[in-house]
Amino acid sequence: MQVQPYIFFEGRCEEALNFYKTALNAEVTMLMRYKENPVPQSSAESCGPDMMKIPPESVMHASFKVGDTDVMASDGMASGKPEFKGITLSVNPTSETEARRMFAALSEGGTVRMPLAPTFYSPLFGMLVDKFGVSWMVNVATDMPPK
């Protein structure tokens, strides 16, 4: 079994995908817009009036790969008000150089919560919220000695 994050960007999905391609070397593996929905319009209407208000160019579903992890994303209901509370995504670059690059890229336009610095459990660790409101931890992976 696998657990995959699914992020609803409420109208900024395509912008976020382009940002993560640069910041995380992400690869977009699938993108479908609402206008490409194979379900007839009458079926969409049965989902409620809010479905009818979503711009057809909005991203209905996307998948992108960060390292070995598949992340799914959408514009959701395109409300313009994404909320990411109580969840943080963690990336584990294998080098300090890559950690610094990722941290700087992800924090561009966002808010640094804990600057990238050495800790007792990692040569470099930091936390931030990116410009889309997604919380991130950047942690250089290391083998912890046994206790």
Rank of each mutant, 00 (worst) to 15 (best):
R33L: 08
S90W: 04
G86I: 02
N37K: 00
A117H: 10
D50V: 11
Q41V: 13
P93F: 01
V66E: 07
T97F: 08
Y121N: 14
A44F: 07
S90N: 11
T119D: 04
A117K: 09
L89A: 03
G133K: 06
L31Y: 01
A104E: 15
V28L: 04
K35A: 07
P145Q: 09
N92Q: 15
V138C: 02
G126K: 13
H61R: 04
P145H: 05
R113W: 10
E83A: 12
K131W: 01
L89T: 04
V112K: 02
G126Q: 12
A26E: 05
S63T: 12
V39G: 11
M77V: 06
L89W: 06
V138Q: 02
M51C: 07
P38I: 00
V112Q: 05
T142E: 15
V28W: 05
L106R: 03
K131T: 06
S46N: 11
Y121L: 14
V39A: 15
F84H: 11
L124W: 07
S122A: 12
P82Y: 10
E57P: 06
S79W: 03
A117D: 12
R100I: 07
L31D: 07
E108G: 09
K131N: 08
K65T: 09
N18H: 12
M114Q: 10
V112N: 05
K81D: 13
L24Y: 09
E98G: 01
V140S: 01
G80I: 04
Q41C: 03
V39I: 13
N37E: 10
V59I: 14
L128Q: 07
K35V: 07
A78E: 03
R113E: 13
G67M: 06
S42Q: 12
K131M: 08
P55L: 08
E27I: 09
E27R: 10
M144K: 06
D143V: 12
M30S: 11
G48W: 00
M51G: 00
H61P: 07
G133N: 03
M114T: 12
M127A: 14
N139T: 08
M144P: 05
M102Q: 13
M114N: 06
T22A: 11
E98K: 09
E57D: 15
M32T: 12
F19C: 06
P123Y: 00
Y20R: 01
T88H: 03
Y34D: 02
M127S: 13
A104D: 15
T69V: 14
